[in-house]
Design a binder for these strands. Structure first.
Lengths: 228, 228
DNA sequence: GCAAAAGTGTTCATAATACACCCATGT
DNA sequence: ACATGGGTGTATTATGAACACTTTTGC
């Protein structure tokens, strides 16, 4: 700080707002809830919560995610700070956007229902409250960016999965169709998947080999997966 | 927010800390100042300031930059939120890191001196207060990342500059030596520079053509400049 | 003439993309 | 037998990196 003392500064309300992405039936979805406090009661909102004095913003984000889905140990990432003084008509709130990508099948549906939350298809979302559209757009952009460099979301798929399933996940994230042959070659060239001897015959007559993840550590930012 | 009311939440001190990078004599530098309040009075610190209730964090960052350098209209970018409860021994402060890249020759040296600030070579910096080392490391990483996709810092150079000058700037940002031939070809292939008819003869006997920037708008993220 | 920076050209390896084509099998 | 998704191979093009080589001119 340039010169002012700590005790004469104005304090602010600080919150987190989480873009919780989920994947189910080949579709990328976002968890939203019907806001139950004024202002804008009943309208759609990202999942958020206040930041307490004795915790980091990351901790607040994890707390919010757990409260709504029951999930812990999910990677979350900062998206950015949103702090226009008038962004929340209810008062001055500085919010930190966070991203999470979860397996819809794994979360606690009772909690989601209790809070009036719902999963929405990400394509076409545009009527959230406040500046939540902006936060969501930036979150999606960041998810795509990350997915272009890292193999994301393997924990969203079953333990054993086919390359086609990975491709469908990527199709849903990027809203485009990747070439089956090229995508397969690219993913396998990363050397992070191990082919099993079992086959999945539910999607094709020939059957597709199952793969599993070896480990996550050493994927570098140089190994670009898809070009965006 | 999931359910709590606005008026019972705890408010926090919010600050910005800016990594102000400068370029001079072929060297990348960082503006730091000797902190003049307790705790840690006298130790080296990033340039920071408090966020007021009626402004965005971006506004606070611009305000701080102007206060210390006199400069306005400088692009600044969020680096991230740093919010460990104990990060500042003086009390709970949530800080937002910001980046700026300025031309050292253009700033107001009197202001810098008045606040006890100094320019330090970025290579080897490691003894800042609190978590400022972490903020600085992330800032430098972000600067490099951005410079790998966009032609940054052209306003740091004279109006008319040689390709060699651009390369030296990049050498200083990445702390490595780019191949003169390849760098030249890559930069010129972006089609954002226009060759002038004048030559600079101060650096070589043959003389090097001056170039100037055409415009900044349409550089896309696909046009990678250097691989990191 | 020579050193030194400016600038051009060549080669090699790698990677993205498009797309042809074979494989296996349930119906 | 044939349609369908699985999987492989190939041609094309673009790009990065290494580096040889040519140009210019002050000394």
């Amino acid at each position: 700080m340039l010169d002012q003392k700590y005790d004469v500064q104005s304090k602010q309300l600080v919150a987190v707002d989480c873009s919780i992405f989920g994947y189910e039936d080949g579709i990328l979805k976002l968890l939203l809830f019907h806001r139950n406090i004024e202002p804008s009661r009943g309208k759609l909102s990202l999942v958020g919560g206040w930041v307490n004095e004795d915790e980091s913003v990351e901790n607040a984000a994890f707390r919010v995610l757990k409260k709504l889905t029951g999930l812990t140990n999910i990677a979350m990432e900062q998206v950015g700070v949103f702090s226009q003084p008038d962004r929340d008509p209810g008062g001055r709130v500085i919010t930190v956007g966070f991203n999470a990508l979860i397996n819809i099948k794994m979360h606690n549906k009772d909690l989601v229902q209790e809070y009036g939350a719902e999963w929405f298809n990400v394509s076409g979302l545009s009527n959230l409250i406040f500046d939540h559209n902006e936060i969501f757009e930036k979150s999606l952009e960041q998810l795509r960016f990350k997915a272009s460099y890292y193999l994301v979301g393997l924990d969203l798929l079953p333990e054993k999965f086919t390359i086609t399933q990975v491709r469908q996940l990527y199709n849903s994230i990027f809203q485009r169709k990747f070439d089956p042959g090229n995508f397969r070659k690219k993913i396998l060239s990363l050397n992070v998947l191990k082919r099993l001897n079992k086959k999945d015959s539910s999607e094709s007559k020939k059957g597709a080999f199952y793969y599993e993840f070896i480990n996550s550590e050493k994927m570098s930012i140089n190994e670009r997966i898809v070009k965006i």
